[in-house]
Amino acid sequence: MVAPSYYNPGAGGTPSALKPMLLADSVSINSSLSGAKYDQVLHDDSSDQLYGLQKRDERLKQRIRILKLTSRIIAAVMSAVTFVPMTMTLVKYLQTKDTYHSVGGASRTAWADNTSTWPTYMYFGVATASLLFNSAVVFAYLRGVQQANRANSVAGYFGMAAIAAHLVTWAVAAGLFRYAKQPHGGQFRDLWGWTCSAAADQIQQAFVEEIQFGVYCSLQSVSWYSGLVNAGTAILTGSIYFFSLLRLRSKRRIQRLTAVRMDSREALRA
């Protein structure tokens, strides 16, 4: 077999001998490792570990997104369920508080003497604030996750303190609302307690055109129970922060492992 010749045309067409050119190792100009050894270094067990951590991080990310959206939808719905009965009750009270009818020979309104309205207004205010905030977050999800995260940033900044505040606010509001329903001096004076009382039933016929006490008793009862559920959403929010902490640890491990692998690559290129 004839060995291949290497030449360039020289001056006057005279061939000139050329030495064979060896290609530089694609791994590194200065590296003493062969390509096989280099691949072995870069494709060790850390590759599988990094891939596993990245998959786990992605699963945690999706789980957190689902839980966030679920918790906000539940909170918004429960806030609305609380808000609507409170609004209907207050509107009905304002419409009828100055309406008088003769009952047992005396002129009176459909409500108790010296009616106490602060429990209803307090509960209404908590429901309104909660509904506005949670609705803003849910609508932000329609525009994208980033928008929702920004809308939810107020709670995120305070972390567990925001969860505790949410739980305490609803628990206290529901507790006060329920406490006010108790009779004081033998008479119900708040709107919820009065509409559910026997005294209201006795004058129902006289005010049948203005109000159905049983309906508003049921509406406010539903509102109270929905407030308890809203307080319970703090537990779901707490689980979100738990998964967020797990993801934070996972991301740190990914960053450390990635940094180690990058240092290894640089060392091989040196």
Rank of each mutant, 00 (worst) to 15 (best):
2 V>S: 11
6 Y>A: 13
9 P>A: 07
11 A>F: 14
13 G>I: 00
17 A>R: 12
18 L>A: 08
19 K>P: 13
20 P>W: 01
21 M>L: 14
22 L>H: 14
25 D>G: 07
26 S>C: 08
27 V>A: 11
34 S>K: 08
35 G>Q: 08
39 D>F: 15
48 D>C: 04
48 D>S: 10
52 G>W: 00
55 K>F: 14
71 S>Q: 09
75 A>I: 05
75 A>E: 09
75 A>F: 05
76 A>I: 00
76 A>L: 02
81 V>D: 01
85 P>L: 03
88 M>F: 12
95 Q>G: 06
95 Q>W: 09
97 K>V: 04
98 D>M: 10
100 Y>P: 04
101 H>N: 00
102 S>V: 12
103 V>G: 00
104 G>H: 04
106 A>K: 15
109 T>S: 02
111 W>D: 03
116 S>A: 13
116 S>R: 13
117 T>P: 00
117 T>R: 01
120 T>F: 09
123 Y>M: 02
123 Y>V: 01
124 F>I: 03
127 A>D: 04
128 T>G: 04
130 S>A: 10
132 L>S: 14
148 A>W: 11
153 S>Y: 13
156 G>W: 06
156 G>Y: 08
157 Y>C: 08
159 G>N: 11
159 G>M: 05
160 M>K: 12
164 A>R: 08
164 A>S: 05
166 H>D: 12
168 V>R: 06
170 W>I: 05
170 W>M: 08
172 V>A: 11
172 V>C: 07
173 A>W: 05
175 G>N: 07
176 L>W: 06
176 L>Y: 06
180 A>L: 03
180 A>E: 04
183 P>K: 03
184 H>V: 05
187 Q>C: 04
190 D>P: 01
191 L>Q: 02
191 L>P: 01
193 G>T: 01
195 T>P: 00
195 T>V: 01
196 C>E: 04
198 A>T: 07
199 A>D: 03
199 A>K: 01
204 Q>S: 06
205 Q>M: 09
205 Q>G: 14
206 A>V: 00
208 V>H: 08
208 V>A: 10
208 V>Q: 11
216 Y>T: 00
217 C>K: 06
217 C>V: 03
218 S>D: 02
221 S>H: 03
221 S>T: 10
223 S>H: 02
226 S>F: 12
228 L>D: 12
229 V>N: 04
232 G>M: 08
233 T>K: 12
234 A>F: 10
235 I>R: 11
235 I>Q: 13
236 L>Q: 04
237 T>F: 15
237 T>E: 15
239 S>N: 09
239 S>Y: 15
250 S>E: 15
251 K>E: 12
256 R>F: 02
257 L>W: 00
259 A>K: 11
260 V>N: 10
261 R>T: 09
265 R>I: 15
267 A>G: 01
269 R>P: 11
270 A>S: 14
